[in-house]
Each structure stands twice: as C-alpha cells, then as structure tokens.
Simulated assay, not measured.
Amino acid sequence: MELYHVTELAQKRALWGVFSRYHYLSHTFSAGAKVYVATVNDSLAAFCAVINFPHPKVDAMRIHRLVVLPAFQGCGVGMLLMDYVARLYHKQRKVMFITTTHPALIRAMSKSPHWICFDKGRKGKYGKNSNYKNSSTDRITTSWRFRP
C-alpha cells in the first residue's frame, strides 16, 4: 500500500470525482481540505480529506471525508489511511477528530486502541422535510479523538 498527499486543487477535484459516488452521506467536499489517498498495487483504494477544526482548547483538525472504494472495503485500508493521517498531524501537535454515522467504520474504530469515542447518540441535523438527499437523522452519530 502506498500513501500520498495531494496538493493540487485540480487533482483533489479529480480524485473526489472518483470517490464521491461511494461516500455514504454527502457528495460534497471542501476544496480547502488537505487530501490523502491510498493505493494498493497502483490502484486507487481510499481517500481522506482533512480540514481545520476550530476548538477552544486544542489545535485541532477533523477528518472531513473518508471513502474506501468497494473493492477494498473491509480489509483495513481506510483505518490504515486514517491512522497515518492522524499520526502526521499528531507530530505537528494537532489533535485529530472524526464524526461518523457509518456502522462499519464505527465497528472498526471501536476495536482500535488509538480512536477514543467521546460522544454517541442520535444527532442528525436534518429533519424529515429536509431538501438533503441523504440524512443522518436515523443513524447513531459517534465522535472520536485520535490518541497514539
């Protein structure tokens, strides 16, 4: 597996074009995000976008989007990429957070000694009358902090 940091906006958008259809809730992503990808045998496997996360007590970042292509789901590529990215920012003395409703990711993070769940519940922000195609109102939302 190879991991890459993508810096060119055109490349970020092109990569998001490949991965966005597989994101479970939203097809948007912040153009200002820092983007990392994982490849396996020279094939794209996973995408991770990170954004600044304003926090009153710590210098923090947040995983904004994490997507693993179907052929690579379930084999740990997403967790490896997430851990790699979180460690990069930890070396810069930044705290990494992620909030997710994805059941498989919640299960995987629950098994990791490096991701600590600090909040869990039903917190969908969009109601039944929402114009959003996908909503997290009926899902359990979990928030996590990386600790190496």
Rank of each mutant, 00 (worst) to 15 (best):
M1V: 06
E2R: 05
Y4E: 15
T7L: 08
T7K: 15
E8A: 13
Q11M: 10
Q11G: 04
A14F: 13
L15W: 11
V18A: 03
V18T: 15
R21G: 02
Y22M: 05
Y22N: 08
H23S: 12
H27K: 05
A31D: 15
Y36I: 10
Y36L: 11
V37D: 05
A38V: 12
V40Y: 08
S43E: 13
L44V: 05
L44A: 07
F47Y: 12
I51S: 12
N52K: 14
H55V: 13
P56N: 03
P56I: 01
K57N: 06
D59S: 09
R65K: 15
A71S: 02
F72G: 04
L80I: 10
L80T: 15
M82R: 04
D83G: 08
Y89I: 07
H90F: 06
H90T: 12
K91D: 14
K91M: 13
Q92T: 14
V95G: 14
T101Q: 15
H102D: 13
H102E: 11
P103K: 00
A104M: 10
I106Q: 15
S110W: 01
C117I: 03
K120L: 08
K120Q: 13
R122H: 12
K125Y: 15
G127H: 00
K128P: 03
N131M: 04
S136P: 00
I140P: 00
F146H: 10
F146Q: 08
P148C: 13
